[in-house]
Design a protein around this nucleic acid. Structure first.
Lengths: 125, 125
DNA sequence: CTAGTTGCAAAGCATTTGCCTGTGG
DNA sequence: CCACAGGCAAATGCTTTGCAACTAG
C-alpha cells in the first residue's frame, strides 16, 4: 500500500488535526479546500476511508448524526462524547463509568458501550 | 388531523407492537405486508412520521445505525439500548446510571444522555 | 361527498464507484 | 515510467415528495 503523499492528503490531515472536534466529510472538504481548492468530496471520502483503514483516523458515529472523523492521536479510545445542542460540535470525553453492567438484563453479554451526553458547551452557554 | 384508520395504518401499528425491539422502516414494510401486500415503503415512511409526530411511536437512533421505530407504549423514556452484534436486534434497557456527571468537563452543561451497550443477546450466545 | 391516504415514479441527499487523466517518487 | 491518486460524473441506497386515483367516514 503505497500511501502516496499528495497535497490533498496533507490538507485533509491538517484539517483534522487543527479541528476542535471530529469533522463531517463536508466540513473536512471546506477546511481542506483552503489549501487545495480543486479538492472534491469523492477524494475526501476515499482518503478518510483509507486513513481509517490505516488507523490514523477514527470514525465517530453518534446517534442520529452523520459520521464524523478525527485524528486518532486525538481520539478517545472509549466512545464517550459530548454533543452541543447549540453549535453541533462534538467533544471527546475522558474517564469512564463504573456501574454500566447494572443496566444489563440477565443473559446478555456486554462487549463494549458508548455514551453520548447532550447539552451546551462552554462557548454556547 | 383526521387520522384516518386505514388497513395499512393498522398493519403498521400491529407490526410495531408485535416486534421484539424497534424496527427499521424496511422491517416494518416486510412485517406489515403480510397483512396488506400492496403496502409500499413511501407509505411506511409517511405513516411512521405521523405516528412519531402524534407521539404514539418513538424513533430510536443508535450510533452508526439507521433509524428504527417502536411503539411508545413499549419505548424507554431513557435512551438506553442494547444492540446485539450478532443478530442486530435492539433491546430497550431499563434503569439508569448515577455517575455520568463525572464525565462532564468543567464549563459544560448536560441536558440529557444516551447509552448503548454492545454485545450478544441471550439468543445469540 | 371530500379531505386525507395510498401507490407509483421521480426527486433529493449523502456516499460510493468507474473511468480516464494527472503525478509522486 | 507507471502504479496509485484525483476529478468528474454517473450509480447507489435511503428517504421524501408530487401527483392522480382511491377510500374512510
Amino acid at each position: 500500500m503505497p500511501e502516496t503523499l499528495t497535497a490533498q492528503r496533507v490538507a485533509i490531515e491538517a484539517a483534522l488535526e487543527s479541528a476542535v472536534g471530529p469533522l463531517s466529510p463536508r466540513a473536512v472538504l471546506e477546511a481542506a479546500r483552503r489549501e487545495v481548492p480543486s479538492l472534491c468530496l469523492a477524494t475526501v471520502y476515499r482518503t478518510l476511508k483509507k486513513m481509517v483503514a490505516a488507523g490514523s483516523v477514527s470514525m465517530v458515529e453518534l446517534a442520529g448524526q452523520p459520521p464524523r472523523y478525527e485524528s486518532s492521536q486525538i481520539a478517545n479510545p472509549h466512545r464517550h462524547h459530548f454533543l452541543c445542542d447549540a453549535c453541533d460540535t462534538v467533544f471527546d470525553l475522558h474517564g469512564c463509568v463504573e456501574d454500566l453492567r447494572q443496566l444489563l438484563p440477565r443473559g446478555f453479554r456486554m462487549n463494549s458501550h458508548d455514551i453520548t451526553l447532550h447539552g451546551q458547551c462552554p462557548n454556547c452557554r
